[in-house]
Design a protein around this nucleic acid. Sequence first.
DNA 1: CCTTGTTTTGATATAAAATATCACCATGGC
DNA 2: GCCATGGTGATATTTTATATCAAAACAAGG
Lengths: 141, 141
Amino acid sequence: MNKIQIENKLSQYGHRPTAARLEVVEALLNFHGHMTADDLYEHMQSTGSSVGRMTVFRTLDLLAEIGVVRPTYQGSGAAHFVLLEDGHHHHLVCMRCAQTVEFAECSFAEDLSQQLAEKHGFKIEGHLLEIYGVCKKCQAG
Amino acid sequence: MNKIQIENKLSQYGHRPTAARLEVVEALLNFHGHMTADDLYEHMQSTGSSVGRMTVFRTLDLLAEIGVVRPTYQGSGAAHFVLLEDGHHHHLVCMRCAQTVEFAECSFAEDLSQQLAEKHGFKIEGHLLEIYGVCKKCQAG
DNA sequence: CCTTGTTTTGATATAAAATATCACCATGGC
DNA sequence: GCCATGGTGATATTTTATATCAAAACAAGG
């Protein structure tokens, strides 16, 4: 998902694609990984952006609401945001050191997704699959 | 997963199944849902438990480390813990109001799980599948 | 182009949640 | 019983998230 697509999605949901929001989106796409709101804010500061901390938080909330990112918990007390590239995301998480490996393989049957959607009256937009385990390093230690 | 099994798992990983920890486990199993550490602490207080707040936090962290629970983000700033009944858990989350519906159906192929495990050197212990969408109520509003 | 009403922004203040610290208690091995 | 280690819980501190609000930006209508 690129900047333009996200911009369109914002409009589509009745939110203005303002300069500040697009700066956040841009930084998010550049960062391309898991980050907290403050990580992103500090990164933006370091690149000379004047977007405020609140706006970063609010924009991430907004993006979560329209399904572009999803907050997850990754060890620390702060929410980490992951980009749902095509509506979904999958990763392996080490239960010890919180190291995270992303993978693209998606074994998730869309059939079931739709089935569940109807059963519970939900309009499905995406999913996140987290697999837990212990990484090689922590198995050794 | 019952109290005894969790108790064994604690021992197995070199942690003592102390009275305080077992009280937390008991409360967790009674609560049977999604809750924050403070929710659980307050619930325990209301039932006359004298276990401290720190112990509740630490025990939940410990249980997360051994794969009994998993913290997730559910709208508020606090981590919500879900019980991984048999190592896994699945739920539908509304992107608007954060309402959560659990479901048992598991379409996740264990084959892929093992395949990924080998590829990345992980020892797999479980997974969490979150499906995002908009609930009936929020679609209407 | 100028109002007018609405949305957005960002500084500051506040609240909430997580973590660090530390003295004390409990337990298991010797 | 004594020591080493692990666990507990009160308090203090830090980190993260949210609320507030005046100012700014913007869209729509005249």
